[in-house]
Amino acid sequence: MQEINITVNSKEYTLTVPPYMSLLEMLREKLNLTGSKEGCGNGECGACTVLFDGEPVRSCLVLAVEADKSEVTTIEGLSNPDGTNPIQEAFIAEDAVQCGYCTPGFVMAVQALLNRTSEPTDEDIKEALGGHLCRCTGYEAIYRAIKKLVK
């Protein structure tokens, strides 16, 4: 067991975790932040994407102990106080959500994209969504939601 200090969604925590616990497991099992999902545990699907010191990572392939003294933002930390967030609103408006299991990962990827640039090109958008799998939507509505956001 190891002690870590970590800031999640602007809140500071001191946690005791086993070294073999992933950041994803820590978020879900220790902090009950179950918005980040496990779709593969192998870095292949993107459902577990969170911001780690501002950059998107696959939290299933990061150890909780590696996140010591770091700052993490999850889907739960995106909403404005009034519960809204422009990315979420765009996904809702374009019906870019079906089963919703991939959605938190996509939303985080888009947040990271918008943190990098407010005027992403088509190539930027493709890069941001790269490695994110959705088995329901066929991606069309997701692209539409992002285009709507950047216009």
Binding site: G43, V57, R58, A109, A128, H132
Partner: peptide, 9 residues
């Protein structure tokens, strides 16, 4: 290589 999140790590 991989995807953005993987490239970050």
């Amino acid at each position: 290589f991989g995807c953005l999140e993987i490239r970050n790590r």
